[in-house]
Amino acid sequence: MEHGFADKYSSTDSPVHRLDARSKALVALFFILMVVTTPPQHLLAFVVYAGLLLWTTALARVPVTFIATRALMVLPFSAFVAIGLPFLGGNETTSFLGLRLSVNGLWVLAGVTMKSTLGVAALTLLISTTPFSNLMAGLRSLGAPAFFLDLLALTYRYLFLLVGEAMRLKRAALARGYNPKWLPQAIIVGRLAGSLFVRSYEHAERMYGGMRLRGYDSRMPAATPARFRAADALALAASMAALAFVRVFLK
């Protein structure tokens, strides 16, 4: 296998895994909305958000290191976009190791770093506790457009296959002595990508043949979603209440 699977923990078992996909998806969305609207100065709130997330991760028996590694992968973007902020001056400044840093800039930097990391961590936890097909069925019964979800499910189905093919193409190129150093060599990547597109097109042709053989008529058969139990409703209500409390009262 040339690549890891993003949702490799989704088919394990735990109390969190057994919850309904709808309830988990709504809680994850609500969590992200609460986190991104919290002012960066409310540090206690961010600590509690992270604590709640860690507690759920422990309940779900998903390795914390897996969630943390994924969450930290978002940091280079903050570094690229916002790292200059504290050095730009401003009204209020503070000095650290002899550098004059802007207080406002530091807060913005801290805010985007905490929010983006928590956002990725929450989604990784959702994906690690909910099989993708259940998530799609849940989103469908929550009213997301069926056509889009059909496409999304098929994309997911072919994603890892094509990533595998891309990796094989790259390995073959490396075996032939491909050692990219200069921008013009992007054209070689382009040829690999062209080959990949032809392969993906031919997958679509075969898939379409298979779909027609099974009686496809411009509509995918949808799985009936599981019953929404009292426990799911309780988990949803309790999580939302806790998150709203943190967002409003903890500073």
Binding site: T155, L162, L192, A193, F197, S200, H203, A204
Partner: peptide, 18 residues
Amino acid sequence: VPLLATTAAFVFAAQMLN
């Protein structure tokens, strides 16, 4: 329908070729 899905998968995979 399948073509859009495999094309999306293609874009995703091609984005991994740096």
